[in-house]
Design a protein around this nucleic acid. Structure first.
Length: 588
RNA sequence: GCCCUGUUAGUGAAGUCAGGCGAUCACGCUAGAUUGUCGAUCUGGUAUCACGGGUUCAAAUCCCGUACAGGGCGCCA
């Protein structure tokens, strides 16, 4: 018995022909006489019929059939009798009258039904992932992921990019995220690290003259998980030589436009808009603004810097800022809702959330109204465009805290107020990031992007004198408030790279040890180059409209980075450890 | 590391606030009936309080701890 068709292929044009279908039993309906079975494969369902008047022996055998049994059936394609068609099924006009049945395999009763509508905890689904993956929705996601990958490869191939592999067993670079370490057996006591990204290798490939490189590649980071973060994830990684920001953006836009056309049949408008980092923070509080709705933030530090309200004036005096978010027409928020918003922002370390309701007569209803002079109030009304029916929220603190708190509150309100058009795909490039930020806990400067990002030329001199004001040639692509890609023009000059590493507080000895190979390569004729990496999983999430990254990864890990299907990670045996020269220290 | 939420038959839920449960419902599964269903139908059956400790005459319910899962903060160059 050899399969001739798949389970969504047959229609009225096949009536009368003999076919062989193979697949899983979706459902059996036994009417005593006739037995119906919905047979499923990855393409769809076909109803197969066992009728005792057609074939008594096969009908008897069909009694053994249970859910998820694997069958091969030979039979005739019949047009369904009058009134018995099922318009909800693609193959609802026909059925297979079975003449031969082969039970290819039996199956235990699955823990849940293989249907999209079922409501099963993720825990159970992940424990039986191989079964969960049979569900049409998940299959659709995984297939879409494949299509996305094909589309991207087609585009990059057409643009002269070469797919080149880079090592997985590589050198640990303790900058940035925590590495997954792999102990070496032949070099006991030494460890490889799994790559957080192929960053340095792709730069080396440019120095080797490959000109354009890409890879759809797994990356690893040993950090805590989120709804959109897995310890191993896939990146669309690319790098180009002899180019500037515009070239990389153009290639990226072409790739994304083709992707959306191929996968969703949506025509995107390119080029995508650009916005500087400073503008994004100023207006939206976050470097990945969701531009599907307004609700911009307004800085009112100047107006309230001398106000009687100490929370505001002191914040400004201590180098902080005061910003406002006007929720137009939302004065109907209850006290409870306002309190909830207050709780919401404390997650982002804001100490509180002041608010003002503008009443119909223009008066302010607010616990803090009494602290402001009429002049201050009028200035605020003008600056924030306060009108009757509005509620305005205020944040006052260090800039980072105010921006993050109000930025997230803005997203929260956009969601809650239904301001977001869920069908919209809003892209924006964020450019001119700061090169460095100051890490308060470690008391040193850190690269915002990574240490190989080029500063803008005008700021070279400020690397040593005023590092925080240095802008970088880094850019992120943001889609609907989520960062889907980021990259930069890299440093290709050895001396500049040394200065950049020194700005991070690294001593010569340190950087020679960690990045000596890079510095040596930079001295041997490195071309100007730059690139970008897209988070493939996040892109696919958005293309599939899935809120969880686990729904677009076949075998994802849980929040504790374990695999419920295989029970990884698990203890290593004594002999394995001896081979590696390792000893487990347990202090529990 | 921290905050929040959850864990009740195979699956999903009710019961938990206010202790009285000998735990309810649906689906599934199973046996029988049934020749046109497609979320088949009808009749019967089936199986459960995450784990450990405590309070109490009595604990699914209250308290403490643990494990696991999820969301978030920190972290993620």
């Amino acid at each position: 018995m050899r399969r001739t068709h798949t389970c969504e292929e047959l229609n009225e044009t096949h009536v009368g022909s003999e076919v062989v279908l193979m697949g899983w039993v979706q459902r059996r309906r036994d009417h005593g006489g006739v037995i119906f079975v919905d047979l499923r494969d990855r393409d769809g369902l076909t109803q197969v019929v066992f009728n005792p008047t057609e074939n008594k022996e096969v009908h008897a055998k069909a009694h053994e059939i249970r859910s998820e049994y694997v069958l091969g059936v030979r039979g005739r394609v019949d047009k369904r009798p009058e009134g018995m068609t099922n318009p909800k099924m693609v193959t609802g006009m026909i059925e297979i009258m079975v003449s031969d049945l082969k039970i290819l395999n039996q199956a235990k009763t699955p823990p849940f039904m293989i249907e999209d509508s079922i409501d099963v905890s993720e825990n159970v689904r992940l424990q039986h992932r191989h079964i969960d993956l049979r569900r049409p929705n998940i299959q659709k996601n995984i297939i879409l992921r494949h299509k996305a990958s094909v589309s991207i490869r087609e585009y990059l191939n057409s643009q002269g990019f070469l797919d080149i592999e880079t090592p997985f067993l590589t050198k640990s670079t303790p900058e940035g995220a925590r590495d997954y370490l792999v102990p070496s057996r032949v070099n006991q006591g030494n460890f490889y690290a799994l790559p957080q990204s192929p960053q340095l290798f792709k730069q080396l490939l440019m120095m080797s003259g490959f000109d354009r490189y890409y890879q759809i590649v797994r990356c690893f980071r040993d950090e805590d998980l989120r709804a959109d973060r897995q310890p191993e994830f896939t990146q669309i990684d690319m790098e180009m030589s002899f180019i500037g920001e515009e070239d990389i953006m153009a290639v990226s836009e072409g790739m994304v436009a083709k992707l959306f056309k191929d996968v969703l049949d949506i025509d995107l408008k390119t080029p995508f808009p650009r916005m500087t980092y400073d503008d994004a923070i100023e207006k939206y509080g976050l470097d990945k603004p969701d531009l599907r709705f307004g609700l911009e933030l307004t800085d009112i530090s100047d107006i309230v810097k001398n106000a009687k309200f100490k929370v505001f004036s002191n914040a400004v005096k201590k180098g902080g800022i005061v910003k406002a978010l006007n929720a137009k027409g939302c004065s109907s928020f209850t006290r409870k809702e306002l309190d909830d918003f207050g709780d919401f922002v404390t997650v982002y370390r804001a100490k509180g959330l002041a608010w003002v309701k503008v009443k119909d007569d223009g008066d302010w209803q607010s616990p803090i109204a009494k602290f402001f002079t009429d002049e201050e109030k009028q200035a605020m009304v003008k600056q924030i465009n306060m009108e009757p029916g509005d509620v305005v929220f205020f944040g006052a603190d260090q800039p980072k805290i105010v921006n993050e708190a109000l930025g997230h509150l803005r997203n929260h309100l956009g969601e809650k107020l239904g301001l977001i058009n869920k069908d919209e795909f809003n892209f924006v490039w964020i450019t001119l990031f700061p090169l460095l930020e100051y890490d308060e806990t470690e008391k040193r400067y850190q690269a915002l992007h990574h240490p190989f990002t080029s500063p803008v030329e005008e700021d070279y001199d400020k690397l040593a004198s005023d590092p925080l004001s240095v802008k970088s040639r880094a850019y992120d692509l943001v889609l609907n408030g989520s960062e889907i890609g980021g990259g930069s023009i890299r440093i290709h000059d050895k001396d500049l790279q040394v200065k950049a590493l020194e700005a991070l507080g690294l001593e010569k000895e340190d950087y020679e040890k960690k990045f000596g190979f890079l510095l040596t390569a930079l001295e041997s004729g490195a071309p100007p180059h730059g690139g970008l990496a897209f988070g493939f999983d996040r892109l696919v999430m958005i293309l599939c409209g899935q809120p969880s990254i686990r729904d677009i990864i076949p075998f994802p890990k849980t929040q504790k980075a374990s695999c419920l299907l295989t029970d990884a990670p698990s203890p290593a045996g004594r002999l394995q450890l001896e081979d590696l020269g390792l000893k487990i220290i347990t202090d529990k």
